[in-house]
């Protein structure tokens, strides 16, 4: 049909159609990547629209999570565990970030008595 034409015109979604080997029939890498992407984008939108500092950090955790799903799916796709190892590091960084960032949030809250991120405009220099 004219799919060839559209394929030549636009980036196609032929990738990652191979099933995740042997284990999950009917589910391709793209399924996981799509879910991961949607979750990432939801986290991103949350980060951009929410003004509560805590929720903003929650949204970054959401993005970390989405990245983790993608990494594990890739690892499974390649039949190795590098992805899982990397997720562990992501987890580490997320934990460290949560500890530091939340301490900072507490600090900022004490200074302005509000959690609104919009009141911090000193970055404009």
């Amino acid at each position: 049909m004219d799919t060839t034409m559209t394929m030549s015109m636009l980036p196609t979604l032929v990738l990652a159609q191979g099933p995740v080997p042997e284990l999950v029939p009917g589910i391709t890498l793209f399924h996981y990547l799509a879910v991961s992407g949607i979750m990432f984008v939801l986290g991103l939108i949350g980060f951009l629209t929410r003004r509560n500092l805590i929720v903003m950090f929650l949204c970054t955790e959401l993005m970390f999570q989405a990245a983790g799903i993608a990494l594990i799916a890739f690892g499974r796709f390649h039949l190795n565990h590098t992805g899982e190892a990397f997720v562990i590091f992501v987890l580490t960084v997320a934990a460290a970030e949560a500890a530091l960032a939340l301490a900072l949030v507490v600090l900022l809250f004490r200074r302005k008595e509000t959690l609104d991120g919009s009141v911090w405009t000193s970055m404009k220099g």
């Binding site: 991103l44 951009l48 003004r51 991120g117 919009s118 911090w120 405009t121 970055m123 404009k124």
Partner: peptide, 14 residues
């Protein structure tokens, strides 16, 4: 655009 508000920069980045 240089409002100093985090969101502005984040939106621009995204």
């Amino acid at each position: 655009s240089q409002s100093g508000v985090l969101h502005g920069y984040a939106v621009a980045m995204a």
